[in-house]
Design a protein around this nucleic acid. Structure first.
Length: 256
DNA sequence: ATGGTTGGCATCCAA
């Protein structure tokens, strides 16, 4: 089966692109981020018409995640197990054909040292325990989503310029490394090396996509000891070039 | 040094 992650930057604004892309690619499971819509207004029928079941976790205006699946989803849950956490909508997970898929929209962080930056750091620490608990239950797991961190200099344009800025900061790298340890592998980097493989191009940079001034911040991770089950991982740049695109483009894996 | 764009929704905030 194929599993995809796609930050759509509003599921309603992206419907034409999403429908076109789903019809063309037909991934078994898709994790969406930044749906930007409360559950009552989620355009579920559009996906059900294409044969997808939906699980949604949304709020007005900001954040919001969802899972679309051609196969039944079981053990669906949202958020952190700790109810003390703020309930902004950033995590949804489900098990499909034996694979537990954790779909996240990691906080952006806004600016280094800000309140939102502190939230990103705390969120990553909390997520670390969460993902550890997932792995304790099953090795057939994927962590997918908008991670909002470029792991290495090869994952951002002009890395010298971005050193220490949001998305490419040592504190983010330390927390990501703590989550991954030796246990989780960045699937894209198992197959493809070098710079210039981006998943996100800011709208604010004139012709940023054409000039390929982007970041690789959307990732798919799998347990190292299950690495051989992931047969392929690639970035689909096509929808980023279509009319009225998201600022992100999908990443996919084919798994055994 | 700064600005540039997009989306939701309210006339600004977040990215």
């Amino acid at each position: 089966m194929t599993v995809a992650t796609f930050n759509v930057n509003s599921v309603r604004a992206r419907l034409p692109i999403l429908v076109r892309w789903l019809e063309a690619v037909r991934p078994t499971v898709v994790g969406l981020q930044e749906t930007k819509v409360e559950d009552g207004k989620f355009p579920g029928e559009e996906f059900e018409r294409l044969g997808y079941q939906i699980e949604i976790h949304g709020q007005p205006r900001y954040n919001g995640v969802a899972l679309l699946s051609l196969a039944p989803m079981v053990e669906v849950s949202t958020g952190f197990p700790d109810p003390g956490w703020p309930i902004d909508c950033r995590i949804i997970q489900a098990t499909v054909e034996g694979w537990t898929i954790v779909n996240t929209y990691v906080p952006n962080g806004t600016s280094v040292g800000s309140e939102k930056w502190a939230y990103k750091m705390a969120w990553l620490e909390e997520f670390s325990s969460h993902l550890e608990a997932v792995l304790a239950k099953t090795k057939k797991a994927l962590w997918i989503g908008d991670i909002n961190i470029a792991p290495t200099a090869a994952d951002v344009f002009e890395p010298e310029k971005h050193q220490g800025s949001v998305g490419f900061h040592p504190d983010e790298h330390a927390r990501l490394a703590a989550i991954l340890g030796e246990k989780w592998q960045d699937q894209f980097r198992r197959f493809t090396q070098g710079p210039g493989h981006h998943t996100f191009w800011e709208f604010v940079i004139p012709n940023g996509f054409k000039r390929d001034l982007g970041w690789r911040i959307d990732h798919i991770y799998a347990p190292a000891e299950n690495g051989e089950d992931v047969l392929e991982c690639w970035i689909d740049k096509e929808p980023r070039g279509w009319e009225r695109p998201s600022d992100h483009t999908p990443v996919l894996v084919r798994i055994r």
